[in-house]
């Protein structure tokens, strides 16, 4: 495979979550993390999952990522059932999860070395390409602890993009950042999403963030974890989080969220 081939966008995947349920046993009782959740995500769509803590968002992401298995139901990526992690679906977490024993570029190379068919020189060029994309090419030799929180998440994003996946699964990736850095990253992420054409599932607690980023915002409710409602956000891109139109969307989503979030945690009988 040649370098231009490798850097060309992979076709984004179509994801189909079909009746997925997942229970956990924690401290002796069962928690229904996901209850018969179904969700269709189109090729190249940007979908945000919002919901109160414990409603199974991370669990759903892990199942799509192949890190966990559903008790029942299945997830299809382009029609193929997902059974294990794969390079076509990369995950990004709230903590950067960068490896401190590698420098910035080494972190990108980690995934690239595991991708067959690339020569050393190509790997280096690919890593540099993505570092440039997130604006950190000057920091390729920096160590992880020398980066700010925002820079770490940029590197983590570049590391996810480097193997050229079809899907990005992002679990509250900006939650630990300050507001200003976050706003910058909203811009960057939208830009990168349009340039690199990925299907993105993005989990957040921040309704405004969801409305700013998502084509669709999916509302979850806990105990048991279910999808309650979804909102299409029809605003043009790139979106600025501080506009009035966006505020209107986020207000109505917040109202819906509050309506669904009530109710004591319920246990599920075995």
């Amino acid at each position: 495979m040649t370098l231009p081939d490798e850097l060309r966008n992979e076709e984004p995947s179509k994801l189909s979550v079909q009746g997925v349920s997942k229970r956990f046993r924690s401290r002796g009782h069962l928690v229904q993390a996901l209850d018969n959740v179904s969700l269709e995500v189109g090729e190249g769509e940007f979908v945000c999952l919002v919901g109160p803590s414990g409603c199974g968002k991370t669990t759903l992401l892990n199942i799509i990522g192949g890190l966990e298995h559903a008790d029942s139901g299945q997830v299809l990526a382009d029609g193929q059932p997902i059974t294990s992690p794969g390079r076509d679906r990369m995950m990004m977490f709230q903590e950067s999860a960068l490896f401190p024993w590698l420098d910035v570029r080494g972190n990108l190379l980690f995934g690239l070395k595991l991708k067959p068919g690339l020569r050393r020189k190509e790997r280096l060029e690919i890593a540099d390409f993505y570092l440039r994309l997130v604006g950190l090419e000057r920091f390729r030799k920096a160590h992880v602890h020398e980066l700010s929180g925002g820079m770490k998440q940029r590197v983590a994003l570049a590391r996810c993009l480097a193997p050229n996946p079809r899907v990005l699964l992002m679990d509250e990736p900006f939650a630990a950042l300050d507001a200003l850095t976050r706003e910058q990253l909203y811009g960057d992420l939208q830009h990168i999403w349009q340039e690199r054409k990925k299907t993105i599932i993005f989990v957040t607690h921040n309704v405004r963030e969801a409305a700013c980023l998502g084509d669709r915002v999916i509302l979850f409710s806990p105990n048991p974890g279910r999808i309650r409602e979804e909102f299409k956000v029809g605003l043009p891109r790139p979106r600025d989080i501080n506009t009035v139109e966006l505020a209107r969307y986020s207000t109505s989503i917040t109202a819906a969220l509050k309506g669904h979030a009530v109710g004591e945690p319920r246990e599920v009988a075995e």
């Binding site: 995950m91 980690f110 995934g111 193997p163």
Partner: peptide
Amino acid sequence: IPPIFARAARTMGSRGLH
């Protein structure tokens, strides 16, 4: 070790001995 390291590595295709 934070379990997230191993999880991140797994999504990038690392397995077993690697």
